[in-house]
């Protein structure tokens, strides 16, 4: 953060702090929800269950990192689920169960993420097209290609070593969780402490001013979409390590869930404000919610309804909040 904790407490301006770090409110809700969940069912707090939640959260969380960056630029990336699927399928097919193929498989999967991200950024900046149209179209194309390629079935297979990534825990925390946290830390440093990271906030906050100050806004945008693509690709690999095979429907929920998590976490859809900590909280809330629903026995159908309601409520609240400022 910009100030050390000592300085924070020395500042008398509590409201300013809260305003700037709205993710605190989100974490509060997270804790509240955990509390409610624990009360409703003893199953929630069982270590095995929590581990499960973390596993789910990891794959969503990694995508959400990239999505946060794109949304900070006032954009949206609707192609993330397709990228996760591509990465998943390609890596599985290239690996074919052999350990020595792990590295090339991973590299090609990441490359796919880079390419799709680049295409997104390119079409959006070069032709000044609305981002949701471009990413939606690319989602469609890539998804379709995957269906054609896999004919809707599972393909490929992973090697033992790779599978271990997905199933092993260290101190009963899944390895994938560590990967998510590690990536988040890198991303936080990136956004907060690198010149480029600050440019993302500047372009998102006031693109015209940023441009007039000499910042290459197109470059910032393209790179951000590439980062998002890579994150989605990594998430696809994480999914692969759990599933064991390439499956074209693997990343389906990531598309909307990643956006919901980012929005819940406090990042504004208009760009320029928000941070990854809020997104982390949002991801945890969403994953816990899914988990609690399953534990209590709420039908998948009802879950979808509630999710829809949550989106609407959160967005309305944020819109009202932003109107007041």
């Amino acid at each position: 953060m910009e100030s050390t904790f000592k300085e924070i407490f020395q500042k008398k301006n509590a409201t300013r702090f809260l305003n700037r770090h709205s993710e605190i409110v989100v974490f509060f809700f997270l804790i509240l929800m955990v509390f409610v969940a624990a009360k409703s069912t003893p199953l929630f707090l069982k270590p095995a269950n929590l581990t499960n939640v973390m596993r789910q959260a990891a794959s969503l969380g990694i995508v959400a990192i990239g999505q946060t960056i794109v949304i900070l630029l006032a954009g949206t990336d609707l192609s993330v689920s397709a990228v996760a699927t591509v990465s998943n399928v390609i890596a599985a097919v290239l690996m074919m169960g052999k350990d020595e193929n792990i590295l090339p498989a991973i590299l090609v999967a990441l490359l796919a993420g880079i390419i799709v991200g680049f295409l997104n950024g390119f079409f959006i900046t070069k032709f000044s097209l609305p981002d949701f149209v471009v990413t939606l179209a690319i989602y469609s194309v890539v998804n379709g290609l995957m269906f054609v390629f896999t004919t809707g079935r599972e393909v490929g297979s992973v090697s033992g070593k790779f599978m271990a990534f997905g199933s092993k825990d260290i101190f009963s925390i899944p390895i994938t969780m560590y990967i998510w946290m590690g990536l988040t830390i890198f991303a936080v440093i990136f956004l907060q402490y690198t010149k480029f990271g600050r440019m993302i906030y500047e372009v998102g906050g006031n693109p015209e001013s940023a441009r007039l100050s000499g910042i290459n806004t197109s470059l910032v945008r393209v790179v951000s979409y590439i980062i998002c693509g890579v994150m989605a690709a990594i998430s696809g690999l994480v999914l692969l390590s759990r599933l064991g095979v390439g499956y074209p429907l693997s990343g389906k929920e990531l598309q909307l869930d990643s956006i919901i998590a980012v929005v819940i976490g406090g990042t504004s859809l208009n760009g320029g404000r928000g941070n990854l900590l809020g997104t982390v909280a949002g991801v945890l809330i969403l994953s816990s919610l899914n988990n609690i629903f399953n534990l209590i026995g709420i039908s998948t159908f009802m879950q979808i309804v509630i999710k829809g309601l949550i989106i609407i409520i959160v967005v309305v609240l944020r819109a009202m909040n932003e109107k007041n400022q």
Partner: peptide, 10 residues
């Protein structure tokens, strides 16, 4: 068809 759709929209 999915592929075609996407390309056509773009």
């Amino acid at each position: 068809q999915e592929v075609v759709k996407g390309i056509v929209i773009l």
